[in-house]
Design a protein around this nucleic acid. Structure first.
Length: 630
RNA sequence: GCCAAAGUAGCUCAGUGGUAGAGCAACUGAUUCGUAAUCAGUAGGUCGUGGGUUCAACUCCCAUCUUUGGCUCCA
């Protein structure tokens, strides 16, 4: 049979040759590094015989698919080790994930640190025994019989869900057999460096009505060097965590006396936030938005009309009773903006209207979901609602997407993930035609602007399709920031109208959008993205002036006045300390520039400039400083 | 909300069934200094909160608040 390699080369092999043998024949000793293969685009184990002509590719650990196979095999090894140490434990599922793998088990007690240590040792022991991962294709009844006998109820349940037309395969290594599609490494000996990272609870099949299982997360590598590198990177990433930086730089805090998820912005954090807001307002005015302001509470009737009391009440704070009326704290700004729209009769000549507001909202997020500034209970959405006619949709969507990307780039972001979420299968409101129109407007905008995006089919809200932009945090977790959503629900509920050219009433289209998402979350991603080293224009303190001793304090003040006049945010380090100490303080505070003033500078009328993280960049005349400090 | 872990001085952390310790920060004094920590001294804590067990609780138990990692949710 003829095998075609990715570079186009072809070679004849005997029928039944395995990818491992192919690898050995073409790359000699390198064959050991091969963890999987692709036959006609399909991922296969390197020990599986190839039966016919095919396109063929070898995969090493450094490829995404290679990692996935490697980690999946490690997950099986984990299950094997757990079953040997704790025979009563029931196994559920154990896939590879973006970074490593996990396996879910049913066990009464949680896995302790000591358990993990013991399991790791057992895994290493089993790895050294080099058990082959043996694949066997079985019938459903054979598989059922096996797992029933083993009393593995989760596997039995999984089998029930597999279609009759699908092949059922099981993989065995040593005494352990798992229901699995594969593929796997040839044997457990390939797994060299293992680290079990953490444990957690996880609902069976991700449904909170089901039993909560015990999950173990881990990662593995072909060498200890790679594992240590990964763990070191993880430690490094933790230093960029916005919660840590927020404390170090004194930007914000929480108080248990005030309540969970309610942010206290300290002077420096609030200043940065103000710079963001000012920029935001300026840009919105430039882009044809009208700035509005709306209250924090609204009567129950409002939320009944909007429908939030029906489908969102679990996320709303309990009402305040005022004059026999229930008032709710707003979880969203939309109804308020709609009331502004509805406050007067609108003509098609006035459309589109774009109402924007930094709207403070409060949502009761479940206690376990709160996370620093990323998920809080009281936050500020950079919200806007675009209300327009059908024929304006395409232009409005395109403008909004462009604006969104512009905003993110203005803050230095280059890497983000963009998702287009389309109509849910069931449970949606509005006309199909409108959905299609809106979806194509969203998609066209992305395509025309040449933006890469992923489609989340059926992932839209019940009221409309949307584009989301997600940004990753220091530890690689994605957080949704920008969102552009159509809404086919509220315009009807609030009976929004405009008078058309034909002098009759029409229902406008509404787009709900937030470009930064929430200021809190945006601020957090901003901090993490820059590792706390904010761009100059956002730094609360841009220059720290460091006199060598008190004798040069007067000169330092002269430099300060000069810089303040030039528009910089400056402070003098006047404590009774050495230069090294003062520089250290400024470096730790991540102040972009330091200016050292001593005898030389005073005599020459210059300033010695030191740049954060870079060090001394030279001595300059005061007039030249504005060219240097940027 | 669920499964876990944690909460000791402003911060980072040690500690133990007999009533609390370090470093940094703060304060005072000395020092007047050239590119990431000058020296000495002083002060600072109802050990998250509320109950319970005990002769005795920071330590053990229960509840609660908050935080952390996940799960779920995220209109």
């Amino acid at each position: 049979m003829l095998i075609t390699f990715p570079d186009g080369a072809q070679k004849e092999f005997a029928k039944g040759t395995t990818p491992l043998q192919v690898a050995a024949s073409i790359s000699g000793g390198l064959a050991r590094a091969v963890v999987a293969a692709k036959v006609n685009g399909e991922l296969v184990g390197v020990a599986e015989p190839i039966e016919a002509d095919c396109k063929f590719e070898l995969l090493k650990f450094d490829s995404d698919e290679g990692k996935s196979v490697y980690w999946h095999s490690t997950a099986h090894l984990l299950a094997q080790a757990v079953k040997e140490l704790f025979p009563d434990v029931k196994v559920a599922i154990g896939p590879a994930i973006e970074n490593g793998f996990y396996y879910d088990f049913e066990r009464e007690d949680a896995f302790s640190e000591e358990d993990l240590e013991q399991i790791t040792q057992k895994m290493k022991e089993l790895s050294q025994k080099k058990f082959a991962y043996q694949r066997q294709v079985v019938s459903r009844s054979e598989a059922l019989e096996y797992f029933q006998k083993q009393d593995e109820k989760y596997k039995v349940e999984l089998l029930a869900a597999i279609g009759d037309d699908q092949t059922i395969s099981m993989y065995s290594q040593g005494d352990f057999t798992d229901l699995c599609r594969g593929p796997h490494l040839p044997d457990t000996g390939g797994i060299k460096a293992i680290k079990l990272l953490k444990t957690s609870g996880a609902y069976w099949r991700g449904d909170e009505k089901n039993k909560m299982l015990k999950r173990i997360y881990g990662i593995s590598f072909p060498s200890n060097k790679e594992l240590n590198q990964y763990l070191a990177n993880l430690e490094e990433a933790k230093k960029r965590d916005h919660r840590l930086l927020g404390k170090q730089l004194d930007l914000f805090s929480f108080s248990s006396r005030i309540g969970a998820g309610l942010v206290l912005w300290h002077p420096k954090g609030a200043l940065i936030r103000n710079f963001i807001e000012s920029f935001w307002k300026e840009q919105h005015l430039k882009n044809g938005y009208s700035l509005v302001n709306t209250p924090h509470i609204g009567k129950a009737e409002l939320w009944e009309t909007s429908g939030h009391l029906g489908f969102y009440d679990e996320s709303m704070y309990s009402p305040l009773n005022i004059d026999e009326q229930n008032y709710y704290i707003k979880p969203m700004n939309c109804p308020f903006h709609i009331e502004i729209y509805n406050s007067s009769k609108k003509s098609y000549r006035q459309l589109p209207v774009r109402y924007a507001e930094m709207g403070n909202v409060y949502r009761y997020e479940r206690a376990g979901t709160l996370h620093g500034l990323m998920r809080v209970r009281g936050f500020t959405q950079d919200d806007a609602h675009i209300i327009c006619m059908k024929e304006q949709i395409d232009a409005e969507v395109k403008k909004t997407v462009e604006f969104s990307i512009f905003m993110l780039k203005s803050f230095g972001f280059e890497d983000f993930e963009i998702y287009l979420s389309t109509k849910p299968e069931e449970k949606f409101v509005g006309e199909l035609e409108d959905w299609h129109k809106a979806e194509s407007a969203l998609e066209n905008a992305l395509v025309e602007l040449g933006i890469d995006f992923k489609v989340d089919a059926g992932g839209g809200a019940f009221y409309g399709p949307k584009i989301d932009i997600k940004i990753k945090d220091a530890l690689g977790r994605s957080w949704q920031c920008s969102t552009i959503q159509f809404d086919f629900n509220l315009p009807t509920r609030f009976n929004m109208e405009y008078v058309g050219k034909d002098n009759s009433l029409h229902r406008p289209y509404m787009i709900h959008r937030a470009l930064l998402g929430s200021l809190e979350r945006f601020f957090a991603t901003l901090l993490e993205y820059h590792g706390g080293n904010l761009p100059m224009w956002l730094s609360p303190e841009q220059v720290r002036i460091i006199p060598i001793s008190d004798q040069f304090l007067d000169y330092a003040k002269k430099v300060e006045n000069f810089l303040v006049d030039a528009g910089y945010r400056v402070q003098i380090s006047d404590e009774d300390q050495g230069v090294g100490y003062k520089i250290r303080q400024a470096e730790n505070q991540k102040i972009p520039y330091m200016i050292i003033c001593g005898e030389q500078e005073q005599k020459a009328g210059t300033a010695s400039v030191r740049k954060h993280t870079q060090g001394d960049i030279g001595c300059f005349e005061l007039e030249k400083l504005s060219e240097i400090l940027s």
